[in-house]
Design a protein around this nucleic acid. Sequence first.
DNA 1: TTGAAAGCGCTAACAG
DNA 2: CTGTTAGCGCTTTCAA
Lengths: 359, 359
Amino acid sequence: MENGAEAPVPGARAPKTPERAHPVTLRDVAEAAGVSTATVSLVVNKKKAARIAEETRRRVQDAIRTLGYRPNAMAKTLVSGTSRFIGLVADGVATTPFAGQIIHGAQDEAWKHGYALLIANTEGNNELEQDAIQMMLEYKVRGILYSTWFHRQTDIPAPLREADFVLVNCFSNEPGTRAVVPDEVQGGRSATDILLGHGHRKIAFINATIPAPAKDGRLQGYREALEKAGVPFDPELVLEAYPDQEGGYRATSDLLTRGVTAVYCYNDRMAMGLYDGLREHGLSIPDDMAVVGFDNQEVIAAHLRPPLSTVSLPHYELGAAGVRMLLGLDGAPGTGTGGVAKIHCPAVERTSVKAQARA
Amino acid sequence: MENGAEAPVPGARAPKTPERAHPVTLRDVAEAAGVSTATVSLVVNKKKAARIAEETRRRVQDAIRTLGYRPNAMAKTLVSGTSRFIGLVADGVATTPFAGQIIHGAQDEAWKHGYALLIANTEGNNELEQDAIQMMLEYKVRGILYSTWFHRQTDIPAPLREADFVLVNCFSNEPGTRAVVPDEVQGGRSATDILLGHGHRKIAFINATIPAPAKDGRLQGYREALEKAGVPFDPELVLEAYPDQEGGYRATSDLLTRGVTAVYCYNDRMAMGLYDGLREHGLSIPDDMAVVGFDNQEVIAAHLRPPLSTVSLPHYELGAAGVRMLLGLDGAPGTGTGGVAKIHCPAVERTSVKAQARA
DNA sequence: TTGAAAGCGCTAACAG
DNA sequence: CTGTTAGCGCTTTCAA
């Protein structure tokens, strides 16, 4: 509850002395400058409407400087009724290494519009989540970004409805709910296109075993790309494995059975496992097998040997687009109050794919 | 005077406005319950001092519920003078995959004590940093955590001094500055001990080429562990390489020159590169070479083949300990106002080290 | 046990 | 151009 430790009292006594940092208020400045608080307020806020005498302004500014005046944002907010906060509740900045980028993007964009980010990491704990939202509501946040660490469907916590909110990296089945999610289908298309673009025609897809929007979307993208390239879809070429290193590793022998020259993995981690598996079979990448991943998990993709071509999950953009949608910027997508914006997943080409001689 | 335009007029037939945000104030509740605002305040804050009639309390609580009252934290703060915010400025939640854990730890601990986290990611931009701190000051934060994404010395931005602050994952050369950093020396000792504990005696250390507290500390830990085990330190066994996958990979042949049975890498990324190098030389881990890393970068360490034994950089704890120190909890370490707390780096054993027959 | 009233620091009419 | 004057929503003596 309350922490027993109060502000450090230097003098040991001094019961009333506001020894603390900055008790310098508008009024103090006003007195020091010999003007009214209203005037000080005017110059502090650089109101162009009110023309202040140059000399007065100077006097006020001096006073501000010498007193070390610092406006009290709380008081400002109290008056205006709404704060310059945007809340971000996340179920796991922690859990995944790149979800932090959602925070980053949100914070950059929020800042750009004069908002500060109030974050709460709930690690999936429902009670904590409720409390966090509650807290944000009490701080009169402009709105709340509700985000998940992987793309999925989600329920809307009741208190969230009391605020202006947008879902980030997740979506609701309630119509009209604003959300911004990665464009998995386009991503799947891009991943496949990398391979196609290098002349590959026999391309396997190792999908995840776990149901998720990514599973469906990435597969659909694969099919669309194939179709557009005039390559018939062969169900035999779609494998499934648990979406981690181990899964990729274990899928190796199955994959080699299909006689493909290239493989598109559901994610980078599987690709990483596949690298090991392929290597153990004496196969080299990209000469014997071209591989692309998905997610662009820096630590992995950029530093595998050879560096992995993949498709980026646009976490930063997700966060940024989230605040834009919340703030009602961003003309076209998510028009008005309903709609979900799909964010582009850019291809990141490295060297795990080599041109393939046309058959 | 009430303005007839805005506020919902009580007696009049208010047009059904269900969206009407939240103009529900303490006073509204008071009126609805037929008591004074003071009374409502008392029951809202569960003041034990003031004994409220059971029936009154009930009436108030009903009113709160039916009106959907939500306290205004800003107003509360205005009165009390100091907010329940703790600021966290970071130079890169983004840059590194695990630094997000600092946020996580800070946020958990802050929450535990009734504080919310106000974060700002400055990505090394000085101006942004100043603005962020400024902003936090205006929001009357209880204090500020100033953190860096890798352990290093840092300067203290001027405005930071206006707040109660503690450095996290960095330190200042100004005496008396509070800081919390990882215990690199102990970490180095632990890493080496893993190898020693498995019977290895000829242990190489691939250090970083880049100067950093980690470079010195991890080396010192290595020496201390060796000494304690009665193994003479051999400078020939200390290599240096750029601290990433590529560096580790390239250090392989040099390493094989030294005739060691085990190697301790400056970090997991180097170990990852080393895995590749070793493999290309037809060597297997841990049979032909035992390897341990440092950092415990999940995506890498836990999923290499074989999983890498390493030492954990305690980011979560860093964040948590930071707020504890800020709040003046935490009895022993960083006593009083000055001092830096060194956080333990726990060993994480996986399977990249195998028992070695004693020579 | 409860109410009246005085602000917390600031902004926004409205006067002068 | 600048000062007066109300509050914003809440906590907190001090009385009743």
